[in-house]
Simulated assay, not measured.
Amino acid sequence: MGHKREGKKYNDDFKKIIMDLYQAGNSIKDLSSEYGIWEVTIYKWMKAFTPISSEEGPLTPEELAKVQKENLRLKPELDILKKAMTIFAKK
């Protein structure tokens, strides 16, 4: 049986440094070869650290996912409150 290859773990500070170097003009190919990181990994980090514009200000995809998850959690509560309001309004 083959064994699963374990990937390297990089902390967020290191990822942000790589993103800063990319934004400063270094190519992904150069960063990949210099730091020994797969190009696809750098592209994934770019997606994760690129802010998304919103009314509240820029959000990272991770922050947006948290907001969406919270929204899904609150929707049923809001529906319950709306139903309760219609019941009490009739009385």
Rank of each mutant, 00 (worst) to 15 (best):
I42Q: 05
Y10T: 07
K90T: 13
I18R: 02
L31T: 09
A84K: 12
E63W: 00
D20T: 14
S27N: 01
K66S: 10
E39I: 07
T41Q: 13
K44H: 09
G25Q: 06
A48C: 07
L31S: 05
L74H: 02
N26F: 09
K47W: 06
N11M: 00
S32N: 08
S27K: 10
E63K: 12
R5E: 09
E34C: 02
K66P: 02
A89Q: 14
K90A: 15
I80Y: 08
L21M: 14
S32F: 04
I52N: 08
R73V: 08
N11L: 03
I80W: 01
I37N: 12
I87Y: 07
Y35G: 03
G36D: 08
F14L: 05
E6W: 00
T60H: 04
I17P: 00
A84N: 08
G57M: 01
T60K: 10
A48Q: 14
K16H: 02
K75V: 04
T60Q: 02
K8A: 07
P76T: 01
D12I: 09
W45S: 04
E39V: 07
F88N: 10
E39N: 11
S27D: 05
T86Y: 04
M19G: 02
I37V: 13
E39G: 08
I80V: 12
K44T: 13
Y43S: 01
A89N: 09
K66H: 05
K75I: 10
D13E: 10
T41I: 03
D12C: 00
K91P: 03
E56H: 06
K44F: 01
T50S: 15
I37S: 09
A89S: 14
K4A: 10
A48W: 00
K91R: 13
